[in-house]
Design a protein around this nucleic acid. Structure first.
Lengths: 168, 168
DNA sequence: TAATTAAGTCAATATGGCTGACCTTAATTC
DNA sequence: GAATTAAGGTCAGCCATATTGACTTAATTA
C-alpha cells in the first residue's frame, strides 16, 4: 500500500490515527459484548445465541438463509444454535405460506423478553455514549462505520433523525 | 431502563437509532476482521494470534500480564497462542533486566512483516472510510467509540491531528 | 525468611466455528 | 408427469479458542 504518512495526506490518515481507530473498534466491541455475555451465561446461552435472537427480533419472519447471510456462518453452525433456541422456546418457526420450504422465524414472548434484557444493556451503553458525544458526533460515527462495512451490507435507510448538519 | 422514546429525548436516542448503531458496530467488526482472517489462514494462524501480534507490535516490550489485561482472556488461553508464536519466531521474549520475572515481548522481523500485512488491510479500510467521511466525521466517530469503551480503557492521548473543528 | 508476584503448566470442559455427506420436501423446469 | 433444483435439516467429526482449577518455579519485596 502507499505510504500512509505521505505529506499530501490529511493528518487524520496518518498511521497513528488509523491505529487508534483500529484499537477503538476492538475495545468498543469487546466492552459492548461484555454485559450481554453475563446475562447469557445465566441462561446457559452464548454469544451466538444472542446474535440469532437479536436478528430474529429485528427481522420477524426472517428465514434461515437470510439469517446466514447476515451472520456469515455456515448452515451447520447456525443449526446447532438455532435448534437449541427452538427447543427452549425462545424462537418459533412456521412455514412460509407462499413457499412452504421456507421457515419463518419469530421470537416467542420468552424470546422477546430475553432479547429486550440483552439489547437494553447495549442500548443503554450507546445512549450514554451518544448523549455525551452529541448529535453531530453521532452523525460522524455513523458515516465512518458505514464506510467500514462492506458496501452490500450498508444500511439502506438514512434515518431522518440524524439530519443535523447541512452537508451535501 | 427509562422509556427510550420519551418525547424529551433527542431524536438520535430513539430506539431505532440505537439499534442502528448496534448493528453498524456488529457489521463493521465482522467486516474489519474478514481480510486479516484470510491472511492468517495461509499461515495456519487464527484471530487470537492476530490480536497478540497486533498488541505486541504496538507495545514493544509488553509483558504477559499487561497483554492479558488488554485482551481480557486467561493466562492459559494466551499461553497456547503465544507459545505458538514464540515457536514460530514471530515473537521474541527477553527477561526484563529490572525484574527478571517479567518477560518482555517484541516482534521479530518476521513478526513485524506479518503484523504489517495484517494491519495494513485494516488501515486501508479505515483510511478509505475516514477519507470518505471527512475529518469532522472522524472526530465524531472517535468521540462516540470512546464513550462506548469502558472508562478505564479509554485512550489517554488526544491526538492533535483531529482538532479540525473549534468545538469546546 | 516469608509472602507475593509473574509466568508457565497440566488437565478437563465448553462454545462456536468448520467440512463433508446425506436426506427430505417442495418448487420449478423440461 | 418426471427430472432437476432449492431450501432446509441432520449426523459425524474436527479444530480453535475460550473457560476453571490446581499446581510449580523463579524472582522480588516486605
Amino acid at each position: 500500500m502507499a505510504d500512509l504518512n505521505s505529506s499530501i495526506d490529511p493528518q487524520f490518515l496518518r498511521e497513528e490515527d488509523l491505529r487508534q481507530g483500529i484499537e477503538l473498534l476492538f475495545y468498543a466491541y469487546r466492552d459492548f459484548t461484555g454485559e450481554p455475555d453475563a446475562i447469557l451465561d445465566k441462561h446457559d446461552l452464548g454469544r451466538a445465541h444472542h446474535r440469532v435472537i437479536y436478528f430474529v427480533g429485528r427481522n420477524p419472519g426472517i428465514t434461515v438463509t437470510e439469517l446466514l447471510e447476515i451472520l456469515r456462518i455456515t448452515k451447520q453452525s447456525l443449526s446447532r444454535v438455532l435448534g437449541h433456541l427452538l427447543e427452549q422456546d425462545f424462537i418459533n418457526q412456521r412455514a412460509d405460506p407462499a413457499d412452504r420450504r421456507r421457515k419463518q422465524l419469530t421470537l416467542s414472548e420468552k424470546g422477546k423478553a430475553l432479547e429486550h434484557a440483552l439489547t437494553s444493556t447495549q442500548m443503554d451503553r450507546f445512549a450514554r455514549a451518544y448523549r455525551e458525544a452529541g448529535a453531530e458526533a453521532v452523525e460522524g460515527f455513523r458515516r465512518v462505520l458505514i464506510g467500514i462495512v462492506e458496501p452490500e451490507d450498508r444500511p439502506r435507510v438514512r434515518p431522518a433523525t440524524v439530519r443535523t448538519s447541512n452537508r451535501r
